[in-house]
Amino acid sequence: MKKKKDEIKIKEPVKIRYKELADGRKSIFLATYFNKKYHYEFLKEYLYPDIDKYKTRNENTLKRVLRVKSQRITELEKYQEHLENNTKQSKVLLRNFIRILAATKEKSTQQNFNSLAYHLERYNEIDIQIGKVDKEYIIGFISYLEKAEIEHTERNKGKKLSKNTQAMYFKCLRMALDEAVSDEIIVSNPVYSIKKKNRPTTEKAVKREFLTQEELKRFAETDFPNELVKRAFITGCLTGLRHCDIRQLKWGNIGVIKNGIEYISIIQEKTDEPVDIPLKDNIKRWLPERNGASDNDLVFDGLLSLGRTTEILPKWAKMAGINKHLTFHISRHTFAVLAIANGINIYTVSKLLGHQSIKVTEIYTDVLDSSLDNAMDKMNDNSNI
């Protein structure tokens, strides 16, 4: 049957898509059509392959996804409505625009934009029209950032925002207003009316603490009351995995065979990007005993939260005679330094660590090119852990 000439095909603004994972699950993400291209938002929701066993769970997951999809469609419609009602003094609301923009960004950037919207609300409860954002408004926001205190985490509650965090929020605001200019919502970006010397700037890079091979060996040989924390920390030193990724690691992620090589294969929580880490013997030695656990069971079941591990790890450092302030994140720094020192290509290290920019990885050192598998074999052979 032929379509009528005047029939117009309308693109669905938000579509549900699926990505097959190595363990058989399907990761669900939304494809949002915005500004003449698709943007992708991973929801950290999964469908399980055993349909009979996980029927109810999968149905509930899809219901949650449909609710999020409906919410995104409503947000887009609201945004389009604002655009249609534009005047020279734009009526598009700043925080609403930023939240819509956030949905089109990569996960880590998305979090930064949403946090910016949160701080703009703390700065001024009334959402301002973008067309009314001027130099005075931005100077006031800079002043707010200098005085703002952290509220959302118990460990850092009451502390001032770091200079790097202030600079990041200012950069996100500049990017959002640049986007508003690009969308012809406003004619110019008022951020550029502020002299550079008066804008928030980042601090000079500080030295990143890490453990040497010898120090890591001493830690491994030191008895520690919480064996699970010890195993998790050393696993982080040997893989570069974050605490959140180690905590959610399942046995189905361990020993995935690809091209005849065993890997730890996961989707990183922070970036929603897949990573495959060669599973060498020195890593296997520090994994807990499986004891008949299923593929869906956690490898480090019962591992303490990041806050609690950070509280108790310094005691372990003292027991090992290491004069360094130990946090769980130091395990990632340790992996990066030891990997680069053993010849792993810096671009590969950057990918394994989930860095958004190679510049972040370059902080560790200059390196020589080498293949990942051969270099990690060298780490495995040279390791006394």
Results as ranks from 00 to 15, higher is better:
residue 120 L to P: 10
residue 137 Y to K: 02
residue 377 D to H: 07
residue 169 Y to W: 05
residue 79 Y to V: 02
residue 36 K to R: 13
residue 183 D to N: 09
residue 85 N to Y: 04
residue 200 P to F: 06
residue 168 M to I: 04
residue 125 E to D: 14
residue 113 F to V: 01
residue 148 A to V: 01
residue 327 T to D: 13
residue 250 K to T: 15
residue 135 K to F: 10
residue 201 T to Q: 15
residue 317 A to L: 06
residue 77 E to A: 05
residue 287 L to C: 12
residue 75 E to P: 01
residue 310 T to L: 03
residue 365 T to G: 05
residue 167 A to N: 01
residue 360 V to D: 14
residue 51 I to W: 05
residue 369 D to S: 13
residue 265 S to I: 00
residue 150 I to D: 08
residue 344 I to P: 06
residue 95 R to H: 03
residue 169 Y to P: 10
residue 269 E to G: 12
residue 365 T to E: 05
residue 249 L to G: 04
residue 152 H to A: 12
residue 331 S to G: 11
residue 132 K to A: 12
residue 64 R to H: 00
residue 312 I to C: 04
residue 213 Q to L: 04
residue 236 G to V: 00
residue 146 E to I: 01
residue 222 T to M: 11
residue 108 S to W: 03
residue 178 D to K: 00
residue 293 A to N: 10
residue 296 N to M: 09
residue 351 K to P: 03
residue 220 A to F: 04
residue 359 K to V: 11
residue 148 A to H: 09
residue 149 E to C: 04
residue 334 T to Y: 12
residue 294 S to Y: 03
residue 319 M to D: 14
residue 274 P to A: 07
residue 48 Y to W: 15
residue 245 D to V: 00
residue 64 R to Q: 02
residue 114 N to D: 12
residue 48 Y to V: 08
residue 193 S to Q: 14
residue 28 I to E: 00
residue 50 D to F: 12
residue 24 G to P: 06
residue 66 L to F: 11
residue 95 R to T: 10
residue 94 L to Q: 03
residue 316 W to H: 14
residue 333 H to R: 12
residue 251 W to L: 12
residue 163 K to M: 11
residue 127 D to N: 02
residue 215 E to R: 09
residue 139 I to L: 15
residue 195 K to F: 06
residue 228 L to W: 07
residue 362 E to H: 02
residue 228 L to S: 04
residue 247 R to K: 15
residue 378 K to I: 09
residue 185 I to C: 03
residue 362 E to P: 03
residue 136 E to P: 01
residue 153 T to R: 13
residue 124 N to H: 14
residue 14 V to K: 13
residue 369 D to G: 07
residue 354 G to S: 04
residue 98 I to Y: 09
residue 216 L to Q: 08
residue 366 D to M: 04
residue 23 D to C: 13
residue 272 D to M: 11
residue 380 N to E: 08
residue 238 L to V: 00
residue 275 V to L: 01
residue 118 Y to E: 08
residue 340 I to A: 10
residue 23 D to G: 13
residue 68 V to D: 00
residue 346 I to Y: 01
residue 64 R to G: 00
residue 360 V to K: 03
residue 347 Y to P: 02
residue 179 E to Y: 05
residue 35 N to C: 10
residue 134 D to E: 11
residue 376 M to C: 08
residue 113 F to G: 05
